[in-house]
Design a protein around this nucleic acid. Structure first.
Lengths: 250, 250
DNA sequence: CGCGATTTGTGCACGCCTTCACAAGCGCCT
DNA sequence: AGGCGCTTGTGAAGGCGTGCACAAATCGCG
């Protein structure tokens, strides 16, 4: 595979033919890279030229040691005594995440949530382009949402192949989600973002990420429950968690 | 503290006064409980009376050993040789998650996403009730969304106290999120669900969960990137000929 | 009543991730 | 040029979570 991002600076480049993609970035690291990226963009717009691991870690809400280890995993080079070059680091992370290539996204299910997702700025601004919308409801077909016409779900398979859809977003009711996933998989889609509250069965080469808004609330509810049962007890520190969330007292 | 769900079956009850809420459920377990709960509801509606750990694990998409360990953590008792009583387990999990108490939720920011969240069925169906909507845009104030009037954000603090808001949902642009969080915290809200793509600073007794749709896509993008670099190798499959090679179907 | 089939609950080992602490490296100032 | 302060990159330790494998327990049946 060619496609080395820029030949100028040294980096994790294998000069000898095979690039071997990415050795084995820890999943936890990958999940944090987008956060670093956003922080870096903010810093860049603020005029910063370089950042220390401490500064970037604070901006991203993580431990500085963790940040350094994450960046070291992807072979990124900062400069000791100085920090990281902001724009260089942005390039590197975007390359690792594959954001230098635009990926076509389709959205299936245009209920409440799907409607909002279709117009969500965050997608376009991060290099993702929604190229097709689908719904099973005939009455919705043809409707234009944020400049894109809704198609009937029976066209999903064909269009997904034609448009080289890379990522499918499922925002249907749970009952329809598995069928949609099957069609997407048949069409060669290998990444699915699932908003439907159900488990999807897919081949092992397909990645599925799930976002369930109700689950998030239930997790918060648990912590509320826990905290509430502690406030009854005496003692100052009512709900001192050994805690997950970062809590910069500022 | 009282509120022991049913005195009949033995459980994680401390007969001696202090109940001490929940010992220390692993965070990973807590995150899975809502998934189990949903699977249980499905099974219950399907007429199942009891479930084996194997069956429930399949329905929830996890390993059966993990499921058993999770349930054992909260002291739940199944019956060896039989399985778990569906309705009893539902009760237990709902109790642990604190879903037996209705928690008031407010939603701040009624853009694209906020609008959808206001009408999202998943909240109400899980026992959460959105009791107030806020936005900074004067032109939106007074508008009724799914039966609830939008109030101006300057009322947030007062209303949050009056309505005993337990959970605040932030769906504002990132620039406004921190200010909203500060107001919520001042009003005594100790749980925040943040959809804005930014880091929030809150006191350590406040729990923040973050949902960032763009991050999910970027993680998928990485895996696409990684997979794409492998398709160059033999056995590579082109999108067109992607036969549906079944994975573990149900 | 006893036995076998079945399923839960859990001790244990392994691997991943986080965190600390520090040596190595870089730039700047004198 | 040399030394000093600052920051990165990383070895090592500890904690957490996962999954295996099996003992304990319960039910049903002969």
């Amino acid at each position: 595979m060619s496609q080395q991002r820029h030949g100028s600076t040294p980096g994790p480049v294998r000069g000898d033919g095979a690039v071997q993609a990415f050795p084995d970035l820890p999943e936890a690291t990958i999940a944090r890279l987008p956060e670093y990226l956003r922080a870096l963009h903010n810093l860049g717009e603020a005029g910063a030229d370089t950042v220390s691991s401490e500064g970037l870690a604070a901006a991203a809400g993580v431990n500085s040691a963790k940040l350094r280890k994450d960046l070291s995993h992807l072979g990124s080079y900062g400069t000791r005594g100085v920090g990281y070059d902001v724009s260089l680091l942005i390039e590197q992370i975007e390359y690792v995440l594959g954001l230098d290539q635009r990926r076509a996204v389709c959205l299936v299910g245009l209920g409440n949530l799907g409607h909002a997702l279709a117009g969500y700025d965050g997608f376009a601004s991060r290099g993702f382009k929604i190229v097709a919308l689908f719904d099973a409801d005939e009455s919705k077909v043809g409707e234009r949402i944020h400049g894109l016409a809704v198609r009937h779900i029976s066209d999903l398979g064909r269009v997904a192949v034609e448009e080289k859809i890379a990522i499918g977003v499922i925002a249907t009711p749970p009952g329809a989600a598995q069928a949609v996933a099957d069609v997407l998989v048949d069409a060669g889609v290998t990444s699915i973002l699932n908003f439907a509250p159900c488990v999807l069965s897919v081949p092992s080469n397909v990645d599925v990420r799930k976002v369930d808004l109700a689950i998030e609330l239930q997790i918060l509810s648990f912590h509320e429950h826990r905290k509430a049962s502690l406030t009854a007890l005496p003692g100052g520190r009512s709900a001192a968690t050994a805690g997950n969330q970062e809590a910069v007292g500022s």
